[in-house]
């Protein structure tokens, strides 16, 4: 039986062609992301601008009481990290997707062999890639310009970044699936962004919150993310509960998004 050893030409060309389709989609989407400027300016530029502003405030160099030598600025780095992820996740990602849906781009892609997984995958890869760049720039600028030490437990910090990215991207898909227009998605993104950022300590550091509010904060995805980043920065492993909280939220948002995401 020689038949079984003969590969169908189409079958061999298929997977190769598809791999390059994802690479091509990602490359094009990355270029578009940079050309659009909204993502780079808000998701990348804004947190770094805040770092520069905070870093220039003399009182932010004060060592916090009972923190083991942390300055106010040190304690703000995890908040800025969480904020850049949140901006990419629930502003940049859903705006692109909703815009594509409104303008029939997703529908057009539906008629090609590109496939939904690759279309969404390219968007997630681009935004995740930008998150990696932003976080790296934040850490490096903070280290070089403002003497903020690198995270004490770097491995834990990276793992936290992965969990936090997963949760914000899942939330972005959720925003894109319930917001039918770009305007609605922007509104939903904002409605999520402010309370989420409040509970990650953007305005009031979590340790300064009343105890009940602290519990609420830890139950929120970005509060849990802040806690994990903070622990990793201080050199310890984040509590499993915080990682678990992020994972649970990520799954919950992804499931809802998977159910309600519309392609037209």
């Amino acid at each position: 039986m020689t038949v079984s050893t003969q590969a169908h030409p189409a079958a061999t060309a298929g997977p190769g062609a598809r791999r390059s389709a994802l690479a091509q989609l990602t490359r094009v989407e990355f270029r578009l992301f940079l050309r659009e400027r909204v993502g780079p300016v808000w998701g990348v530029g804004f947190p770094i601008l805040l770092l520069v502003v905070f870093g220039s405030i003399p009182s932010f160099k004060k060592v916090l009481d009972g923190s083991g030598g942390l300055t106010v600025l040190d304690s703000y780095i995890p908040v800025l990290v969480v904020m850049s992820l949140a901006l990419l996740g629930f502003v940049s990602l859903p705006l692109t997707l909703v815009n594509y849906r409104e303008r029939g781009i997703l529908r057009r892609l539906e008629t090609t062999p590109a496939g939904r997984v690759r279309v969404l995958g390219a968007q997630l890869i681009v935004n995740f890639g930008m998150a990696v760049v932003t976080l790296a720039v934040l850490l490096i600028v903070a280290r070089l310009a403002y003497d903020v030490p690198f995270p004490g437990q770097f491995g834990a910090w990276v793992i936290t970044a992965l969990f936090a990215s997963a949760v914000v991207l899942a939330m972005g898909l959720f925003v894109a699936s319930i917001g039918s227009t770009a305007r609605a998605a922007a509104a939903i993104g904002n409605v999520l962004f402010y309370p989420m950022m409040f509970f990650s300590g953007l305005w009031l550091p979590i340790p300064a919150m009343p105890e009940t509010l602290q519990h609420v904060a830890h139950a929120f995805p970005l509060g849990a993310a802040w806690e994990s980043f903070q622990q990793a920065a201080l050199g310890s492993w984040p509590p499993a509960l915080a990682l678990g909280t992020m994972a649970a939220w990520a799954v919950a948002f992804a499931v809802i998004a998977g159910r309600f995401f519309r392609w037209e």
Binding site: A13, G14, A17, A21, Q24, L25, V28, T112, P113, A114
Partner: peptide, 9 residues
């Protein structure tokens, strides 16, 4: 270029 990359031939 992008759309052509989606297809087998």
């Amino acid at each position: 270029d992008l759309y052509s990359s989606f297809y087998r031939s």
